[in-house]
Design a protein around this nucleic acid. Structure first.
Lengths: 356, 356
DNA sequence: CTGAAAGCGCTAACAG
DNA sequence: CTGTTAGCGCTTTCAG
C-alpha cells in the first residue's frame, strides 16, 4: 500500500493529466480511502465533520468519480441503449427526445444507435450495447415480422411499434387499427363520398393495421369497400404523388384519401393541388403520425397523431421499472388522436395562426 | 483461486442470469484465464489450436466480453458524448446521424445529451459524461458568448457552431458571413431591387455574422444598406410572419428578403403568400440552414445549406484524431452552399419533381 | 464511526 | 506459447 502511494507521487505532472482518485484524496487527508468513498457517497455512518472535510478536499482537488469503476462493482452503468432506424425522421427524434429527457431525469444516459434500417447494424448494436453492459435497451426493430432475431438478449428490453416481439419482452405501440378508423370516420363525417387509401409497403404490419381500421370504418358507416381505390406503394412522398395521380385519373376517382403516413399524404396533397383541386372543399386528405412538417402553414395536414412524447415516456418508464424490479412482458397500447387541420372540411384554414 | 471457482459453481441458475466471464470458460477448459483473454483478443502469441478451441467454447457458452472491465484497465470506453440543444430539430438530428454513423464505423458509441437550450443541463451533462469517462465530447453549446463555462474539461472536445470556445478546444463552424453573402448575391442576381433582412435574436453570434454577410453583399454590388428593412426578432416562424407583415406594410416595402434561418423564412413566406404576392416573381425569399421542410413541394425554399453531413463527419474525425494523438486546437470553417428552389426567380417551380 | 482486505472482470508485465 | 501476479478505481463485508 505504502509502496503504491510512493509510486503515485513520482510525478506531479501525471496527477494533472490523469484524473485523481479517492486514494489521492485519502492520502492527502491521511485517512483510509474507504472512508473517503463512504463520505463521497454521503454514508450516514461517517462523522459529519470528516465528511465535510473530505467533500471539500475532493472539490478542491477537482475529483471526478469514476463511473466505470463503480459500475464494475455495482453491476450497473446507469445508461440505456436506444436503437432506432433513423434519428433524422421527426417521428423518431421526438420519441428519442422524450426518452432522453425522462431517462436523464432518473440519472440514466442514453446511447444512441441509428440502424439506418439495416438488420445487420441492428444486431451489431444489440451486441455492442450488451458488451457495454447497458442497464436496458429500447428499440424500434427494423424487422417487421415474427422472426426472432434476438432471443439471446439478457438485458431488460422494450420494443416499440415493432412486430418483432415475443412475449418475453415489453412492448408499446399505438393502436393503428384505431387510428385508421378515426381517420376515416372523420372523413366520413366531413361528408366525403368516396374515400381511397394510399398505403406504404404492403408487407408492413402497421400499414396493414391502418388499412384494417380504414375498412372497419367504411363498413361501420355502410360505405362500400372498393379495392380499386386501395393501393399500396412505398413510404415516401414520390409514391404518394404517383399513386394519387393514378387515382385522380380514374373514371370514378375518390374525393378523399386516407394516407398510410404523413410523408405519403404530402405527395398526395401536392398532386391534388397540381390538379387544381380545392383542398379541402373538393378533396380531403388525412395522414398518419403528425410529423413535424404536418403543422407548417403551407401544409396544415389533418392527420392522426401518435402521442410520441407519451410513448417515449412510457417506454423508458417501463424499462426502468424492469431494470429495478425484473418483471417482464408488460404490454402497452396507446390511443392515437385525430388532429384536424386544413386538408379536411369543417375547418377554415388557419390564417395567421402559426404554430411551429 | 480454487476457492473462488468453487463458489462460482454453487448455483447453476446464477450462471444463467449473470453473464459468464473469461474465468468461467478458463475453468471449463482447464487453462489459465490469461490465455483465454489472449485468445479472445486474437493475440498472435497463442497457439492456434487452443485459440480456436477457446473461441468455440466462448461462443458455445454465450460469452459476452465486459467492456466496463476492459475500460477500467485500458482507460478508454470507446464512447463519445454528443451534447446538443434539441435533437428534434432537423439541423441537429442530421448532424447527429452523421456523427453517429462515422463514430460507430470506428467502433465508438455515442451518448446523446439533449440540453433543451438549458445552460444548467449543459453543465450537468458535461459532468456526467466525464464521470462516465467518455473518450471525447462533441457539443453545440447553448452559450453563445465568450463566457468560459467549461474550463475544467479534461476530455478531448470539439465544439461546433458555438461561440463559446477558447483556443484550447477544437471547433468547426460554417462560414456564416459567407453564407449571408451568397444569399444576398443570389437575390441581387435575380434582380430584386430592395432586399430586406429578417433576423433572429439580435445577440446571436451566427445571426449577426449572417447579417454581416448581407451587408457586405449589398455594399459590394452598390445597393444601399437601409436599416429600416433590417429587423431582428426571434428564431421562429411566428416572428418571421410578424416582421414580414410589418415590412410589407411599409410605404416602401422590400421586394425580397434574406431570412436569418429557414424557420423564420417559412413564416415570411406564408405572410407573403397571404398578401397575395406571387412568389418568386413579385417577391423573393432565401433562408438559411436547408432544414428538412425546406425541400417539401409545398415550400421549396431557396436557402443556404450548411453541409450538415460533412460537418458531423469532420467533427467526429477531429475528435478521434485528438483522442488518439492528443493534439488540440484545430479549427475548421466550412463553406456554405446556395440551394436554389422556388422562392427566388430564374427557376421554374419544380412541378412533379419530388425530392423528399 | 473507521480501516483492512477482498474482489468486480479484465489486461499487462514478467517469468518460465 | 502459457501461467502467475498485480493492478484499473471503486464498493462492500467484516472487524475493530
Amino acid at each position: 500500500m505504502d509502496q503504491w502511494y510512493a509510486s503515485r507521487e513520482m510525478s506531479l505532472d501525471w496527477r494533472i493529466i490523469m484524473s485523481i482518485t479517492i486514494k489521492d484524496i485519502a492520502k492527502k487527508l491521511d485517512i483510509s480511502y474507504t472512508t473517503v468513498s463512504r463520505a463521497l457517497n454521503r454514508s450516514p455512518k461517517v462523522n459529519s465533520v470528516t465528511m465535510e472535510k473530505i467533500i471539500q478536499e475532493a472539490k478542491k482537488m477537482g475529483y471526478q468519480p469514476n463511473a466505470i469503476a463503480r459500475g464494475l462493482v455495482k453491476k450497473y452503468t446507469k445508461t440505456i441503449g436506444l436503437i432506432i432506424p433513423d434519428i433524422t425522421k421527426s417521428y423518431f427524434s421526438e420519441i428519442a427526445r422524450s426518452i432522453e429527457a425522462v431517462a436523464s431525469k432518473q440519472g440514466y444516459n442514453v446511447l444512441l444507435c441509428n440502424t439506418n434500417w439495416d438488420k445487420i447494424q441492428e444486431i451489431t448494436y444489440l451486441q455492442m450495447l450488451q458488451e457495454k453492459r447497458v442497464d436496458g435497451i429500447i428499440m424500434k426493430s427494423v424487422v417487421d415480422t415474427d422472426e426472432n432475431l434476438f432471443n439471446n438478449i439478457r438485458t431488460p428490453l422494450v420494443l416499440f411499434n415493432s412486430r418483432a416481439y415475443n412475449d418475453n419482452y415489453n412492448y408499446i405501440e399505438t393502436d393503428n387499427v384505431r387510428g385508421g378508423f378515426l381517420a376515416v370516420k372523420h372523413l366520413i363525417e366531413c361528408e366525403y363520398k368516396r374515400i381511397g387509401f394510399i398505403g406504404g409497403k404492403c408487407n408492413s404490419y402497421s400499414n396493414n393495421q391502418r388499412l384494417e381500421g380504414y375498412k372497419r370504418a367504411l363498413k361501420k358507416y355502410n360505405y362500400p369497400v372498393d379495392e380499386g381505390i386501395i393501393v399500396n406503394g412505398d413510404f415516401n412522398t414520390k409514391s404518394g404523388y404517383d399513386i394519387m395521380d393514378r387515382l385522380l385519373k380514374l373514371k370514378n376517382p375518390p374525393d378523399a384519401i386516407f394516407a398510410g403516413n404523413d410523408v405519403i399524404a404530402l405527395g398526395a396533397l401536392y398532386c391534388a393541388q397540381e390538379f387544381g383541386l380545392n383542398i379541402p372543399m373538393d378533396f380531403g386528405i388525412v395522414g398518419f403520425d403528425n410529423v413535424s412538417f404536418a403543422k407548417i402553414p403551407q401544409v396544415q395536414l389533418s392527420t392522426i397523431e401518435q402521442p410520441k412524447y407519451y410513448m417515449g415516456k412510457r417506454a423508458i418508464e417501463m424499462l426502468i421499472e424492469e431494470i429495478k424490479g425484473k418483471k417482464r412482458a408488460k404490454k402497452i397500447v396507446v390511443e392515437p388522436k385525430l388532429i384536424i387541420r386544413a386538408t379536411t372540411r369543417n375547418r377554415k384554414i388557419n390564417h395567421g395562426r402559426l404554430v411551429i
